[in-house]
Amino acid sequence: MITEEQARELAQDWIEAWNAHDLDKIMSHYAESVILTSPVAAKLLNQPSGTVIGKAALRSYFKQGLEVYPDLKFELLDVLWGLSSLVLYYINQNGTKTGEFMEVSSTGSVTKVVANYNE
């Protein structure tokens, strides 16, 4: 079970890693078998499913994202948590609101991500 403290710590560390554009720190949150689904991934990867499978592929996708969006910055608005998941609600440098649902393993690694945007 994820506690409020764990959810808030993961969220803050995740936001700080992205805002620092620190790819190694960003990747430290994810399991080897992670699966991410995102409309941005569909666009950047020219892949209709928007699905990225595995940590190596995710690293490559995130690297590309940091290059395409050099002014990328996130502001955390809220964190919601459940038994083994959390939702990060934030805005980016363009004012786009995002909700990322993340499943988290018993070791604290993110195993699944589903990103949703308001634009």
Rank of each mutant, 00 (worst) to 15 (best):
E9D: 14
V79S: 02
A7T: 06
T37K: 11
T3H: 02
Q64F: 05
G65I: 08
A17I: 04
S105D: 13
S106M: 09
D78V: 03
E75L: 15
A57R: 11
Y117P: 04
N116F: 08
L44T: 13
G82M: 08
W81Y: 15
L36A: 15
L58R: 03
T111G: 09
Q12I: 06
E16F: 00
T111Y: 08
Q6H: 03
G82K: 08
Y61R: 03
G95L: 14
V40C: 07
E4D: 14
L58G: 01
T37D: 03
T98Y: 01
M1I: 13
S84T: 12
V79I: 10
N46W: 00
Q64W: 07
D22M: 03
K25Q: 13
E67L: 08
G54N: 09
V110M: 00
V104G: 06
L66Q: 02
D24N: 13
S85G: 10
W14R: 08
A57P: 05
Q64M: 15
L76S: 08
W18Y: 08
V52H: 02
L88Q: 10
G50K: 06
A31H: 02
E9H: 11
E16I: 00
A115S: 12
L83E: 15
E32D: 15
E16R: 08
T3W: 00
Q12C: 06
E32A: 15
D71L: 09
V87A: 07
E4R: 15
L86E: 09
F74E: 07
G54P: 12
P70Q: 10
A115M: 04
Y117R: 12
E100D: 15
Y89W: 10
I2P: 03
V40Q: 10
E4W: 05
L44Y: 14
V104T: 09
W14S: 04
Y61K: 01
T107C: 06
L23H: 09
E9L: 13
V34W: 04
G82Y: 07
V40W: 11
S109R: 14
L80I: 11
N118R: 10
R59K: 14
T3K: 01
N19F: 11
Y61L: 01
V79W: 00
G50T: 06
S85Y: 14
N46H: 07
N46D: 12
G95W: 13
N116V: 14
G50H: 05
K97H: 11
E16W: 01
N118Y: 10
L76W: 08
D71C: 03
I2S: 03
E67S: 10
S105F: 05
L88D: 09
L10H: 05
P39N: 13
S60L: 05
A31E: 00
V110F: 00
L66K: 03
I26D: 04
W18P: 01
E75K: 15
L58A: 02
K55S: 05
N19A: 09
D13C: 05
N118T: 15
L88K: 09
S49A: 00
S84A: 14
T51K: 14
E5D: 12
V87R: 01
N92C: 02
N116Y: 10
E4N: 14
L88S: 09
Q12D: 13
T96R: 15
E103V: 01
A42G: 11
A41G: 08
E75M: 12
A57K: 13
F101E: 06
M102K: 02
K73V: 00
S49Y: 01
A20I: 08
V110A: 03
D13V: 06
S84M: 06
F62M: 12
V104D: 08
A11T: 12
